[in-house]
Design a protein around this nucleic acid. Structure first.
Lengths: 346, 346
DNA sequence: TATTAGCACTCATGAAGTGTGAGTGCTAAC
DNA sequence: GTTAGCACTCACACTTCATGAGTGCTAATA
């Protein structure tokens, strides 16, 4: 694989990404960076095809890149382009005032901002809930036999749930409950809240168990919710207006977006590209590609950040964006996590 | 307009709803309820076309209904079909245990259930927030200079918001704040929380104003949120898999779904059908139709409940569903609203 | 040996032409 | 008032054909 062939491959990919049409030898030969005739380009393209980097949709058409072709192109292109200061500033302002944000809101903002900039769908997964602890549980009566359970985790997630009871709780009930919850839940890691553990707690309530059971049931549900992988998806509409993707598959993807979690948490590190359907049945939008990168919190993987779009994606532009966001999240979360008393190992 | 013409119109609409193809005179004449020849049907259809109930896509095609045609058909069909007990039970179970539900959750469930059954998009608007009062405000410290504002309204809506402060609040701050909020916000109607009123409150905080301003700003934001018309949309994906509708228009609709509020609150009563685009520019999905019905709370309109789908909708089936849900919501909300001071235990 | 010009070949695409059939309106007979 | 019969319309599917972009191969050239 000599330098010219690589140049030709890059030119084909670039052109194909721009136009969506198969690229012919003549088009390539007229580019300033290619100084050979169409015939030579043809010879090289035949070799590139044999090597599996290019293919022809049909005999009399130009070439389009294969997945391997894209991969080589991306390696080649990677790190060659940087965001300028102006762009960084724009992204920063879209992320909102980080220092006043909770973790969850920050991830939400990142997802939305990235979707807006890239005009693609974005997906942000967050493993943090699993590793966080319950920092506060409160049950608040709000009249008419409705009680609100408020649950706050160490990573800033707030959940609430209203429970309607069949009778009013006595002061004794409330005192017991509040104390019980404080003692048994506050400071407990979310990942320790197994079904089994919750059942133990219920039994431990003794005579109060029956009266308070709707509330306990509510807390169980909330903890189950918290243990789910959190996946934030934004910009799904962008996929629908993308001509390269099958609308039906996109719709199916959108309605199953919550199942993306597992896919993102595959044990890969750094920046990864996954091509839909052919490569990964779980991510079944044909002709689509997903660029994923992992962000960290205090040196440990805390989640992933990705862009989903057509295979024909402007990688050269988008990858720097993803890099920037990944760095930014990592930096911010680590600053936030370093600070204080919550979950220092040991 | 004699009975046979009405029968023919109904047959055309029925058939068109089922097949999506223009309906010809021969098809109609072979139906058991039509006992005349194709030629006679043709004559009648020509009259129905003159009256504006049918139209021809092109000369040599069958007839399709016009909007007026659908309207006449719906009047005719209306009330002719009822849900059977089995179906009612199914709907009830989808709505969840009403007696343990808050108002908001109930509406959410209704929207989702209706979407699932009808395979359409559904929209539920809720005017209640405007008419409700704040029943509880609390500010809860959760460490690391983060404070959670919890706001609960009389109709069961719970909102929370985390505020990150630049320094920790003193006990004095907290005491003042809690008392201040209780005195000035609890029991206040949401609709009274004008920008002006909030500014008055801020000024009334005196020397505490500066220190507590991020929290006050947070409360302002939350109250602004509460005053917005609440619109719950479900089943949007169903519109995307509907061949009759333009995908682009559907996507546009989905991304602007929050603006539907005004449309639903037009001063209409009972069951209404709106046809998209042609009839109402605000509801701009061409070839779509929306069936809307108002539900009440203690005799006053409390919101609307609607189904959005293609014009070619199975009205005969869907209208009874909407009626049932409307009745159900009305009954439940009224019971809930009435029964403030019931004492049926101890 | 690497590159290039030349040439025959392929094949998607789009335009033009054609046949078919479902459906119509009109008229005259029942 | 209803119906059979007939000529007419027109979307749609099908075929045919010309075009041109792009190819691979070969032989000449640097």
């Amino acid at each position: 694989m000599d330098a010219r062939k690589l140049r030709i491959l890059t030119a084909v990919v670039d052109n194909y990404i721009k136009t969506g049409e198969p690229v012919g030898s003549k088009t390539i030969s007229m580019m300033p960076e290619i100084k050979v005739s169409a015939a030579t380009v043809r010879n090289d393209m035949a070799v590139l095809e044999e090597l599996g980097f290019l293919e022809q949709p049909h005999t009399s058409a130009g070439r389009i890149p294969t997945f391997s072709g894209y991969r080589l192109y991306i390696e080649e292109v990677l790190g060659k382009s940087e965001l300028d200061a102006e762009e960084k500033e724009r992204l920063d302002s879209m992320l909102g005032d980080e220092s006043l944000c909770t973790e969850e809101l920050l991830l939400q903002n990142a997802s939305t901002a990235l979707a807006e900039i890239t005009k693609c769908a974005t997906v942000v997964s967050n493993l943090a809930p699993k590793y966080s602890v319950i920092s506060k549980v409160e049950v608040i009566p709000t009249g008419k036999r409705i009680y609100v359970i408020l649950l706050i985790t160490s990573n800033g997630k707030i959940k609430n749930k209203a429970c309607r009871m069949t009778f009013d709780l006595t002061e004794d009930h409330m005192n017991f409950l509040q104390k019980f919850l404080e003692e048994n839940l506050e400071g407990v890691s979310i990942s320790d809240l197994s079904e089994e553990r919750l059942n133990q707690l219920i039994t431990a309530m003794g005579t109060y168990m029956v009266a308070l059971s709707p509330l306990v049931k509510g807390i169980c549900e909330m903890s189950r919710d918290l243990q789910k992988d959190e996946v934030i998806v934004a910009g799904e509409q962008n996929l629908l207006s993308c001509g390269d993707l099958d609308k039906g598959e996109v719709v199916r993807f959108i309605s199953h977006k919550n199942e993306l979690g597992g896919l993102l948490d595959d044990s890969m590190s750094g920046l990864q590209i996954v091509f839909g359907e052919e490569e990964n049945q779980n991510f079944a939008i044909g002709n689509s590609s997903m660029i994923v990168s992992k962000y960290q919190k205090c040196g440990k993987t805390a989640g992933s950040l990705g862009v989903i779009g057509p295979v024909r994606l402007d990688y050269a532009k988008i990858i720097p964006y993803i890099d920037y966001f990944t760095e930014k999240l990592t930096r911010f979360l680590s600053e936030q996590g370093d600070g204080k008393d919550d979950d220092n190992d040991g």
